[in-house]
Simulated scan of single mutants.
Amino acid sequence: MLILDGLAKTYRGAPRPALDAVDLAVGPGSFLALLGPNGAGKSTLINILSGRCRQDRGDVRVAGQPLAASNPALRALIGIVPQEIRFDYVFTVEEILRMERGFYGLRADEAHLAYLLERLSLAPKRREKVRSLSGGMQRRLMIARALVHRPRLLLLDEPTAGVDLNLRHDLYGFLRELNGDGLTILLTTHHLEEAEELCGRIVVLDEGRIVADRDREAFLAMAGDHLTLDMRTQGQARIRGLFEGKGVVTEAGAGLRVVFPRAGREPVLAALAEASPLVESFQILRPRLEDVFLELTRKEPGLA
């Protein structure tokens, strides 16, 4: 569905390229997370795909054809949800969506319009001016506008930035539904748990280059074959000795953390059973996407 071949971009006066010979192939129906620290090149890549800037070198192909501003039919295959909320606020929700279809030369599709309004909880607001909507509702409208022309590739640039937890989980369900229906989705996010929960493939950019590109399970396996036991306890000192020698034991808030090899879990579980009278709560965690991300980039996971 999307192929980047040697994509390169250097901004005037910049000390290094924003993108440095990026190669990427995204198949139809994929749900891909594009991650990276600040300045990694993610926003530049999204801006090139959306036509907001041009690459210096390299090619972009969508559905097998070169992406060009002179090919509006090909541009219509892409839906874009940028970070910034941008509307002409004098129009109503429904007017915004109808005009967006018109920009692509498409007639009204009442069934699809009704579906988007209902699925994104915008139906009660359809005749309200955009300026009267809350930030969360405006974010929903951004997504509806990106989908109103039925694209085959959806670019989501921090789609849940600044939204509450309920809206975030509503959008998760909707995105899974869209992807299940065959829509190809490319997501950038600073919520690493969001990428881990939604995406089947993880790509990490750092300093304009791809430093990792694997499916989710293979990506998580890069953190090593270990597990983490987090416990909230009434007396760390009294039970710490039970876990010594079975893993790396550290204090964590009002409890203990034990990092141990998966193959060595039986002694840890036996120690946990012995310590249970003093354990208020516990959880056993597999390696997280954040662990691998930090190892690859050696930076805090603030994403641009």
Results as ranks from 00 to 15, higher is better:
residue 9 K to H: 12
residue 11 Y to L: 13
residue 14 A to Q: 14
residue 18 A to P: 10
residue 23 D to R: 12
residue 24 L to A: 02
residue 26 V to K: 13
residue 27 G to Q: 15
residue 27 G to K: 15
residue 32 L to G: 01
residue 35 L to D: 06
residue 36 G to K: 07
residue 41 G to P: 06
residue 42 K to S: 06
residue 55 Q to V: 09
residue 66 P to S: 15
residue 72 P to M: 08
residue 75 R to F: 06
residue 79 G to F: 06
residue 81 V to G: 03
residue 91 F to R: 12
residue 95 E to V: 14
residue 103 F to Y: 15
residue 105 G to K: 01
residue 114 A to I: 00
residue 114 A to M: 02
residue 122 L to F: 11
residue 123 A to P: 03
residue 124 P to I: 03
residue 127 R to I: 01
residue 127 R to T: 14
residue 130 V to W: 06
residue 135 G to R: 07
residue 136 G to W: 11
residue 137 M to R: 09
residue 137 M to W: 15
residue 141 L to Q: 04
residue 149 H to L: 07
residue 151 P to W: 05
residue 151 P to H: 10
residue 154 L to W: 03
residue 157 D to Y: 02
residue 164 D to M: 11
residue 167 L to C: 09
residue 168 R to P: 09
residue 170 D to N: 12
residue 177 E to T: 05
residue 177 E to Q: 14
residue 187 L to E: 06
residue 190 H to M: 01
residue 194 E to L: 04
residue 194 E to F: 04
residue 197 E to T: 11
residue 197 E to C: 00
residue 198 L to V: 08
residue 200 G to W: 02
residue 200 G to K: 02
residue 203 V to E: 00
residue 205 L to T: 05
residue 213 D to G: 00
residue 217 E to R: 08
residue 217 E to Q: 10
residue 218 A to N: 07
residue 219 F to A: 07
residue 223 A to Q: 03
residue 227 L to W: 02
residue 244 E to A: 11
residue 245 G to I: 14
residue 260 F to D: 09
residue 263 A to S: 14
residue 265 R to T: 01
residue 267 P to E: 11
residue 270 A to P: 03
residue 271 A to H: 09
residue 272 L to R: 05
residue 276 S to N: 04
residue 279 V to F: 00
residue 279 V to W: 07
residue 286 R to K: 08
residue 287 P to T: 01
residue 295 E to Y: 02
